[in-house]
């Protein structure tokens, strides 16, 4: 994994697992660039989760573990979305890890 990614002509630092080094570097295009590297096209459903995570981080200052994310999504967006199947379909590399990365958050706390 390179230690920077190019987004809109800027080089942004990432850690060894591809998470943005600086939270404030994030812009929506970051998610598009990261998704492209994973051969994934972001849909409004993906964005709903990415935006949810950014709001969650804003409120709690933490990137949630997957089961905490699932619970919280269920509460906010309903049980149709707050379940592993739905979230794993959107983010096959693990909803918390992959979506947090796209959202510019650190690696979730409690994900091993």
């Amino acid at each position: 994994m390179a230690d920077t990614i190019e987004v809109n002509g800027k080089q942004l630092a990432v850690d060894e697992e591809g998470y943005l080094a600086n939270l404030n570097d994030w812009e929506p295009e970051v998610a598009n660039v990261m998704a492209k590297q994973d051969n994934l096209e972001l849909t409004p459903e993906h964005w709903e989760i990415i935006n949810f995570l950014r709001e969650y981080y804003e409120e709690y200052q933490i990137a949630p573990a997957v089961r905490v994310l699932t619970k919280a999504v269920g509460k906010k967006l309903g049980p149709d979305k707050g379940n592993s199947k739905y979230l794993y379909t959107l983010f096959p590399y693990g909803p918390a890890k992959q979506a947090c990365r796209y959202a510019g958050l650190p690696k979730p706390t409690g994900c091993v």
Binding site: Y60, Q61, V68, A72, G110
Partner: peptide, 14 residues
């Protein structure tokens, strides 16, 4: 420094 006090509110979720 990071203000981590809001994170205590997630303990129940964990």
């Amino acid at each position: 420094m990071k203000n981590f006090s809001p994170t205590y509110r997630t303990l129940g979720d964990y």
